[in-house]
Design a binder for these strands. Sequence first.
RNA 1: UGGGCUAUGGUGUAAUGGUAACACUGCAGAUUCUGGUCCUGCCUUUCCUGGUUCGAGUCCGGGUAGCCCAACCA
Length: 617
Amino acid sequence: MNENNSSNVTTPPRPLERGTGGEAGRAASFIEQKVINDLAEGKNGGRFQTRFPPEPNGYLHIGHAKAIALDFGLAKKYGGTCNLRFDDTNPQKEDTEYIEAIEQDIKWLGFQWANVYYASDYFQQLWDFAVWLIKQGRAYVDEQTSEQIAQQKCTTTSPGTNSPFRDRPVEENLRLFEYMNSGKCEPGTLVLRAKIDMAHPNMLFRDPLIYRVLNIPHLKTGNRWNAYPMYDFTHGQSDYLEGVTHSWCTLEFVEHRPLYDLFVTWMREWIADCGSQAESGSQLSTFRSTLVAPHLENSQLSTYQGPRQTEFNKLNLNYTLMSKRNLLALVKNGFVSGWDDPRMPTICAFRRRGYSPESIVNFIQKIGYTTYDALNDFALLESAVREDLNQRATRVAAVINPVKLVITNYPEGQVEELEAVNNPERPEDGTHTIEFSRELWIERDDFQKVAEKKFMRLAPGKEVRLKNAYIIKCDEEHPFDEDADGNVTTIYATYDPETRSGLPGADRKIKGKTLHWLSCGHCLPAEVRMYERLWQVENPRDELARLQGEGLSAIEAMQQMMNPDSLHVLQHCYIEKFVRDMPALTYLQFQRIGYFNIDTDSTPDHLVFNKTVGLKS
RNA sequence: UGGGCUAUGGUGUAAUGGUAACACUGCAGAUUCUGGUCCUGCCUUUCCUGGUUCGAGUCCGGGUAGCCCAACCA
């Protein structure tokens, strides 16, 4: 190999500002402002703790990246801690596959958790708390069907009515709650409900279900539990038990906040009550430190004011469907090749597609955090990825729609080694060698039999420069061969030996542009996968709802919205030998075409590339 | 026929009662051995309506529009 070949073919990640907003010139979001204020006021003794709480029921998508950048990003920026907590309260949808993928994606994005917790870690405390609520007369076992319960909750516009089981005696409630968890209780027959207000304007307060029977083994707790707590009865309490100070979530949870606060308040009462029944002060202290935020010092516990939920707008992107449920349907129905199909909005898909983690995080910074339900233009994301890849991608020549070009005055059998810059944005990345010879591949699009008005590339009698090589001129007498259908099969040109890049004669100015090219005898065949948007409608979320409202199934609606041309596999492409042994996911720029990366399917004997995003044109 | 949240150029975001700005998109130009990058310029903005105030995008009232809530999902 040539000495010029640079050793750092894969460009190392640039050091990057990881703060969430607040960089020079950028105002802090309202969320960040609250953190700044809380810390300035010395709330929670100056302690600051967040959590990222995914349910392990699917892969993370770019919407999660927005939450991740906030939860982890602000914790890091302001000296707090962020824990990863799996909200694993529904064993019917959860899988360890997802747990591993979620951890991998968070790390890939460049963030670190302090601890990994599971909501299921607190099942015992939640159970004990529920028992206490029953004893307090604040919870009861209902044995109506879900339809009956729904009917009694009534509609958003009119008050509900009480369950006939609302005033069941405490002893009976305790017995039935125990039975719910026995494994003998038929799922769907009994639920535990909090006794609040069936006429409350907030539907969530109409005696919410807090425990249901599933009789399904749990990833973490196995067969220990058969009755499982619901989200609203778990989330705030988990935050509290962990010592979370700032609990951030998306806007659809705004009306959950009063319930969140209520259950946290009740839990404080329960803990205080347990404490008052303890026999001595030291036991109380022991009890508190075991139960509440075990990692916290007593002094930190004493200043802990409890978690505060704040909501921000989730990420919506045009031409993108984000909900995990629908992404799962795409995978299950084979509409895409998997969770990491490069057309998916998942983190793993963006990784495979060639997006850098920095570009995703930068995009998140740019769109910010507000309480407005925005629909972001995908161009904002593409601009972020181009900005980052322009700095780091290794430039190579690839011809994706080849046509043969013969340099008629170049000696047959002669081969020259020329120098190509790896990245003009980073001279320190060095150069590599390319071969020039009589027969070359160029892009079919770079030649026109009769040049259009603004066409500045190759055409009969016209001059262009071949990148890093010579100025050539297309023959006027016999410029090309064509087949019976008029397709050009070979183009003929002559080169000007004085104009080789680096020679004095190379400075000659010509009208034509600079073309990329490959020597036929010195390049490799390649498969290139070109992607377009998966959806043809700008707002798939709303359109899906609309079509389903018209009676279509989700599958039918998705088929109707899907872009039939979202994937083009180009089998007969050529690329420089330079890339042959580069690792999968290497960031590349195919000069004059776009940013590409090496697919995870690629092998040295069968190179496969994904189009990340095109160059601006 | 209830409750909650929201409204600033085509898109997103800022302006914390005091000159409406930044990025993206689009258009035009300059430079260019990538029709890329870099550089220059341009286009386009406070939902409506009352009020408070010396002064309102910002505060208040009334409209209008959009989103969320009637899962044994999270």
